[in-house]
């Protein structure tokens, strides 16, 4: 136990994900020995992020205004919406620089065992976005795990009757991996989705 404010700092740092009591102590003492200008800059950013960052009212990605920069960008294709679980998935897809459509962030995946049902996600908001007829394709890019697959199944069942094209990113062998280590489900999907080799 340390005195007053130092212990407060350790306690607060210990609340962060992946930071245990020892780690919190180490970070606290690093901050105490660091250049005060650097620490003040970090504190200012922390305050700023809580004050300025909110969720985009259209897609629910993190944004600094009412709408995120992707929703505001007129060059993005409004006819394709890529549905993801979390804002960090938007960042992962943006990194590939292939997708030019827009996003919709659900805020998680359906997981009844954790008490998360369809009503706890932003599915109603997605359906409202589809109502104006501007969207022609929905890409269901939820995680390729059980909850993500079940969420995609639920959404496909909801969206397909509207007559939209519903797609899901391919699953299969990771580039740079070795075939013998692939599990049966992944390998099965890779064979199911095999493609012609153009030479």
């Amino acid at each position: 136990m340390y005195e007053g404010v130092v212990q407060d700092l350790i306690d607060e740092l210990g609340q962060l994900p992946g930071v245990g009591p020892k780690g919190a102590q180490r970070i606290a003492f690093y901050l105490l020995s660091a250049d005060p200008i650097d620490v003040k800059r970090l504190a200012a950013v922390l305050v700023e992020v809580t004050e300025r960052v909110k969720f985009c009212r259209v897609c629910f990605n993190v944004a600094e205004d009412d709408e995120c920069r992707i929703c505001k960008d007129v060059r993005r294709d409004p006819s394709v919406i890529c549905v993801v679980e979390e804002p960090k998935d938007v960042a992962a897809i943006e990194k590939i620089r292939e997708f030019r459509g827009r996003y919709h962030v659900l805020g998680g995946a359906i997981s009844p065992i954790d008490g998360v049902g369809p009503d706890d996600l932003r599915i109603r908001e997605l359906m409202t976005r589809l109502a104006d007829g501007a969207v022609t394709e929905i890409i269901l890019a939820t995680d390729p795990n059980l909850e993500g697959e079940a969420t995609a199944t639920y959404l496909a069942r909801l969206i397909k009757p509207i007559g939209l094209r519903v797609t899901r990113p391919a699953s299969g062998l990771p580039v740079g991996g070795e075939l013998e280590y692939a599990d049966e489900v992944t390998l099965g999907r890779a064979f199911e989705g095999r493609r012609l080799v153009d030479v």
């Binding site: 997981s111 009844p112 697959e149 079940a150 199944t153 639920y154 069942r157 599990d183 049966e184 489900v185």
Partner: peptide, 20 residues
């Protein structure tokens, strides 16, 4: 893997919720 029951169940929402 001995048997991946999840693959079938995730593709059928009522069965998935029942299995959960």
């Amino acid at each position: 893997t001995l048997r991946p029951y999840g693959e079938q169940l995730a593709a059928d929402y009522p069965r998935y919720t029942t299995g959960t």
